[in-house]
Design a protein around this nucleic acid. Structure first.
Lengths: 243, 243
DNA sequence: TGGTGTTGTTGTCAAGTTTACAATAACATT
DNA sequence: AATGTTATTGTAAACTTGACAACAACACCA
């Protein structure tokens, strides 16, 4: 019942998911990209794309995004935020994209509608390496060049959504930090996301009055100056405080 | 090139758009629904669904949503907000929905992924009547009963998105009001959207200091008490003030 | 060991924003 | 002219935001 043989004229639309995986190294925001190699007019070309893939027959959208990420990075439990569907005909106006895709999935493609997801991850968790034929790597978001399909647009939209989401959900950005972090790391993260300087004293004050950001009795190790105190984010306290 | 004859085992996924059209009558928020009539096990049944339809082969998602609305209501220029894609397998767990759909589109259906849109309209603009076989009508949002597919979930999510959108874009809710409106109408709208009382004096003060909400030299007509002043929303001034 | 360099940590005040609260004005109806 | 109903307006306290600079800690080096 879930498969059927059909014979009819039909636009060949496909449904895929693409994941904008954002990481933070204490200094810059980066995005996880897949290196793509293709051939067009006898020329080999290399470029990059967002990790993504077609959904399976029996798979929910969210599950497909989760699977794509797991296959690429090994990351299992992750907060995925579905933020937009892209279905413009223009998506496949670059022949290289269409040919690459048809080669990859062995089917004719007229259009592909993709559902885009955001995942914020601790940068250490994303296990790099090759997945199938494709190498993946972190690229600082302001060093991203031309991507396949409309992935530059998707990335731009995603960053805007992260900004908005961080405003309505103060816990969101903690997904980018390690379990123990300094106020400087947190402050730098805010500055990168909002694109403007945060006053040192006011920022510290603001964090100190959040009871779900807990000061630890530990300090940074191995720095050539006064070591900063470490903090942790307590998700249970956060959820309780939301009520 | 945009059509091709294929013969292969294939899950029959379709892509549709559904529109959550919200209106406000000065008192309550309502949503535009389509009456659906179907037959199952020899029994005729009536229920309601969100307006929606399959996308055409050469049609962008946004254009499809716009077309569906125009066909149903006659509304042409409208701000459509795409807010979520729904693709769970559970969407088609009710056999009545599947059979109704297969009868409507004359194709087998395994799953249907739908892209959901929100439109806020002035309630007077939505031209009611029948569209094809289907009658459409406004239903107050807290009187909505069981809808087809997962449309109750889509509606719930949409209202949440309207709330969030109104917070980040102060011009958003003016789409629901007539060109001339009273402060009471505006205040009632805020109370319905946010679900809590707004203080009369503070609300008036807040509105008075928005230079894009302009007091007119006109008053309400035909009320059996002191007539309230009319205001209008100036979109150009709003856009200028945003900078 | 004392000095230097680098980053961490902390408080106060002014300005602006939000909240709470009630008396009077306008006007149609009787 | 009295009544009923809704419209309109101000002030003070609480709270939040933003600007601003001195001292503390500690590794490193001379």
């Amino acid at each position: 019942m879930s498969e059927k043989t059909i014979t009819m004229p039909l636009a060949v639309n496909h449904i895929s998911v693409d994941c904008v995986v954002i990481g933070f190294d204490g200094e810059k925001l980066s995005v996880l990209l897949v290196k793509r190699m293709g051939e067009e007019d006898g020329q080999v070309f290399h470029d990059m794309k967002l990790p993504g893939g077609l959904i399976y027959t029996d798979e929910n959208l969210d599950d497909a995004a989760r699977r794509v990420l797991r296959e690429l990075t090994g990351i299992k439990t992750i907060d995925l935020l579905q933020f937009k569907a892209y279905g413009s005909k223009d998506r496949t106006k670059d022949k290289r994209d269409v040919h690459w895709l048809e080669h990859a999935i062995q089917m004719h493609v007229d259009r592909i509608v993709t559902i885009a997801y955001i995942a914020l991850v601790r940068i250490s968790r994303a296990l790099l390496g090759t997945s199938g034929d494709n190498e993946i790597c972190w690229v600082p978001i302001d060093e991203v060049r031309q991507l396949a399909f409309d992935h530059n647009i998707i990335l731009r939209d995603a960053i805007e959504v992260v900004r908005r989401q961080a405003q309505t959900d103060p816990s969101y950005l903690f997904n980018l930090l390690p379990p123990k972090f300094t106020i400087l790391q947190l402050r730098t993260l805010y500055e990168r996301v909002y694109g403007k300087r945060q006053d040192v004293r006011n920022f510290q004050k603001k964090i100190n009055q959040l009871d779900y950001v807990i000061a630890l009795d530990e300090r940074e190790q191995g720095v050539a100056h006064r070591a900063a105190r470490l903090y942790r984010f307590d998700r249970k306290l956060f959820k309780r405080a939301r009520r």
